[in-house]
Design a protein around this nucleic acid. Structure first.
Lengths: 209, 209, 209, 209
DNA sequence: TATGAATGAGGTTTCATTCAT
DNA sequence: TATGAATGAAACCTCATTCAT
């Protein structure tokens, strides 16, 4: 490995450290209350250093979403490649989503923050492109499964994109909603059980007969 | 009408004007980029006046959500009271949700902002209570319908709250998700059609047989 | 009593009510933290009304000092007019001061606020004149006694104004200082006993032999 | 000198610069009329920088008092340690007080502002502790001298704390009072001569016989 | 590359004061 | 005379970002 490569790798490593610190702080404080100084302190770096790796606060925050989107896309693709029935694949999506939820329950808040319109302006084209790419990958994989199901006559004959949207959006919505109920009313965490039921219902609703 | 009543009504009217101005600005700019000064200017009032009617920026923003929550709760209750089958009631929820979406597509972003945890601190107890109340009302009405369905043997025998959560959260998630796709990819607005399909699927998934 | 006179008297009465309300609020909150709205509310009036009786907040605050200055001047003059020895008169000042302190311990803070330079600008000439007048009266009476003492050969032969200053200022300083010690360290209120000792010492120090 | 030490020293130096700027502005305008922006401008810094060194306006203002309290405590202690009689020590206090007065006549206004109750809330515990400490040191030294005097049979047998209070408070009161007379009536500055007489009187009043 | 002190724009909020009723 | 809703200036303070070292 040459010197250039090592440098690149160190740089990549440092970037990951910053992202991890940012995740912690953003998760606890939310986007606005989190300060760059606190993130820097969490990463055991100085504020100025963050700007060597990320254009601004917005972009640092966005990279959290990108990271998880990338992860989601990978996991979903793995499910798609498995040699199992489409019904089983749809069911397996549940495991993927729960996996992400376990990884960081607050991650979805980040994803939604990203989607709140307020944010889309300040992003650089490069970052925006990444989001679109990974988003399309994750979503595309779901669409593929749905398409297979329709072709095989297993699923109802609706627009595959719409069906994939429903799967995806229901998942997101449930996580956010159940989580907010937990916060507002000090309830237990029912995300997993609710999500399980949702997949059962949607899975059943998808079936042709 | 006495002088006191007229004053009260003017005051209520003024509050509505401010809320309308706030909706416009928050919708365009998002919570953080919106400034109190801009809202005041939009309402043709001075900044200080806003604070006669709302404790702070947070609470003004929250009142948008309360307003729509109240509306939602009312509409859902109307559906519940109708003399139709539970299946038809579930279907009718679609109309309610679409109705709200048409009223102001950005309003849901507000609701989700509210639920992002970042916000809950600065709210006065009174406002927090209102949110909980209307939220419980809307959700409670859905739960009631689900319960009826289960009792009548029409719906699958799952925890009614979980089922209601799925309906509610899927709706929210779809609106947010499809809306963000629209923004990111300059697509057409597929919220309504996607929501229609979702209700079909979920309705079917809910059925016992 | 004519209609004009009655009106005048009612006006005077209203003014006193406002001053009493102001004293309460200023005493509890200090000059800056006290708001005109709170004073109005305490006086069971509306904010606007205060401005019919007082030019501004500063002047309202100042009239507290004027009121007490007037009172002090009267009381001191009464002592001066008594048919007792100068030594007894000096001793009697102690009673006057304690009397004022009992009337409102915070009043001196007001007096000192008045003297803090920060305030003197915004006062109307009329008010400023009043302060000077009553201040001169109260102080002048003390000076007179001191002069008598010196003439009678009872007191040391120093500048009478300086001696009066010392009496007056020591009194003020002790009230403020002991009061602040009480606040800072949660001590008992030693103002009276300290003041008593002070008068003993100063009285003794004043004597010629 | 290492790099760390130099940085520390620069930091300390910067703090002093800010304090000096603050003294100038607070002296001219008083606490409320002084603005952070003006202080920053006087210090040739930006407003934000002030907040790197002081928590808020209140604390910056308080540090002026702390600085002078520290100085006072030191000077008084020096007098106490001198090998002179108690009577001479009491007399020497006069020099100390005049010294402080010459250093900055407005500083006492600050001290009294500090004691006006209105202020004590916003201070950090650390700052409050400092005030108590230095205040106790300065006052304690005076008490020691008075105690010595009583033990040696030179002074009257009163509570030493009360006697020290009288010395201290009379000093403060005279400075404030004479200064305000100067401001109000455009008189000459009689603080020093009045203070001299006061010490003579009090000194004489303290003597046992 | 890393630092971290300094910046300074700009936002929220308060509240003395006004004025139409 | 009394009201009290509305004003709007102005202040404090924060914090993303920069840049000399």
């Amino acid at each position: 490995m040459g010197i250039y490569e090592r440098k690149q790798r160190e740089k990549e490593q440092r970037k990951i450290e910053i992202i991890n610190a940012a995740r912690t702080v953003f998760s606890n404080k939310g986007f606005n209350s989190a300060t760059m100084e606190e993130i820097a302190s969490q990463a055991e770096l100085s504020p100025g250093t963050l700007y060597l790796y990320f254009k601004n606060k917005e972009e640092l925050h966005t990279s959290l979403s990108i990271e998880i989107l990338k992860h989601l896309a990978d996991e979903i693709q793995t499910v798609v490649n498995k040699n199992i029935s489409v019904e089983e694949k749809i069911e397996s999506f549940y495991d993927v989503f729960i996996d992400v939820y376990n990884y960081d329950p607050n991650i979805l808040i980040n994803l939604f923050h990203l989607q709140s319109g307020e944010t889309l302006q300040n992003l650089s084209d490069e970052v925006l492109q990444q989001i679109k790419t990974y988003s399309a990958m994750a979503h595309g994989a779901i669409i593929d499964v749905v398409k297979q199901g329709i072709e095989q006559g297993a699923f109802i004959d609706e627009h595959p994109v719409a069906l994939a949207d429903i799967i995806w959006a229901s998942y997101s919505g449930i996580v956010l909603w159940v989580d907010s109920k937990r916060l507002l009313n000090n309830q237990k965490d029912f995300v997993k059980s609710t999500l399980k039921t949702a997949f059962k219902i949607i899975g059943k609703g998808l079936k042709k007969k």
